[in-house]
Design a binder for these strands. Structure first.
Lengths: 244, 244
DNA sequence: TTCCCACTGTGATAGCCATCACACCTGCAT
DNA sequence: ATGCAGGTGTGATGGCTATCACAGTGGGAA
């Protein structure tokens, strides 16, 4: 299976600093971009962990133990039904925070988090995190905003599944949603998409074979083009039209 | 069309106090249950509005102007696709906050909010709300938790749509999800469900006729019972089994 | 090289269910 | 009482697509 996700990143975990206070990527990461004072406290309560590729960070149904901040690497978030169907919710990238909503609600984790490559992750236990929030008002505001963004992403998933009538529509919408969010900020009509067809199918709510057929058809119809693992959306308008 | 939602409430808007500080229902409402000081400030920035039945509070795609707290009445939250399909996200009840995520993200409202009966709503403009948040750390924490709960609800929607293979599965799952969340706290296997089949279909991602057929079948198979507008889930285990 | 394994491509088939069509039922307004 | 409008019950039909089956492909390991 391909092991790198939506937008190209190095296949191995980059070295990350010992402490968040020294992290140079902080500024561009919504959650991490905290006031000095808060970051220092965060460094006290956070634990730095390295996960090998293909390991489970936490599992759907486990009572939430705390939150996980992705420092490097990619992590697949997926939920499974009793009869073995899988829904891939998203591929988390550095800067994403996992387990926030379950931790705040004191509910079981909604999904299983599995590393797709070696990952560096900082984790904070539930109790410490809640205390951290109540001490730093700014952090609560950041957190609210981070969850708001996650909400929006899941909303798009639900919307796509409910409103994009056909498999073609859902796949087209998925690619458009990706092009729009561009993995980090700016929309880009060309992006690297190294998921397998099976994984795409699990995100679009369809089957592996249908994804294969549709991608080929999109290419024949010249609404997309593929060069290796990268995809260009040639005619976004045409694509919108297929959605429903 | 029936005008009362999932769990029985008076058909007309109850009288609500002039100011939140005097509201007796505050304690049991996650968002409203704020410290004294915050409530007073909230009363200064909030505007009390009465909406008649079947009026639009805000529309999908409008740039977020602010948040809306439901004081009385029921409000349908729905998204529509270009070709006229409708997804009903939820029926909001008193205590729910609308437009939070769009306001925090500074994005357009994700859904259209339409009153199902006369409603009392308190609204706060975006700018005032953000300032309010930055002044009261506690409120940010509350807000984060409220959004976390909304996240969980949408997640269940997405999950249901993606993983509950058949229409029967999705409808069964929808009823189970409702029974579990019980509209306010405790799970109840019997609840009032006065939505039309059309509306149910729009929540379960299926068609009106299929909902009719399935409800009848569920009743024939004695997994549910109906008395007027109320539904009892007789055999929840059997129901889980249908989900997938 | 050779094997192996995961991934991709493609046809055939069958089943689900959206859609159309129409009957019926109820409450409500005229 | 009459008609109307919105909601519900039910059959017939066709299209989409999941699923099965199997062939082709390409890269990594031995």
């Amino acid at each position: 299976m391909a092991t790198s996700g939506k937008n190209g990143t190095p296949p191995a975990a980059r070295q990350v600093p010992e402490r968040c206070a020294q992290c140079t990527d902080r500024a561009e990461r919504l959650f991490c971009n905290l006031p000095e004072e808060a970051i220092e406290r965060f460094d006290e309560i956070a634990m730095q962990i390295s996960y090998p590729s293909r390991s489970i960070v936490f599992e759907e149904g486990q009572r939430a133990a705390g939150i996980f901040v992705v420092c490097s690497g990619q992590i697949k978030l997926a939920a499974t039904s009793r009869d073995g169907r899988t829904m891939i919710l998203k591929i988390a990238v550095p800067g994403d925070v996992l387990g926030l909503t379950a931790t705040l609600n004191d509910l079981p984790y909604e999904v299983t988090a599995e590393t797709l490559e070696p990952c560096q992750i900082r984790s904070v236990r539930r109790r410490d995190f809640l205390e951290f929030l109540s001490h730093f008002g700014d952090v609560s505001r950041h957190t609210a905003q981070v969850i708001a963004r996650e909400y929006h992403e899941v909303f798009l998933d639900a919307r796509r599944l409910a409103l994009s009538g056909s498999a073609a529509g859902r796949l087209a919408q998925l690619l458009l949603d990706w092009a729009r969010t561009g993995s980090c900020g700016k929309p880009e009509l060309r992006f690297t998409m190294a998921l397998t067809h099976e994984e795409l199918a699990n995100m679009a709510g369809t089957s592996r074979e249908t994804v294969t057929r549709l991608l080929n058809q999109f290419e024949r119809d010249e609404v997309i083009a593929r060069h290796g693992a990268s995809i260009s959306i040639l005619r976004p308008v045409e694509m919108e039209r297929m959605v429903g």
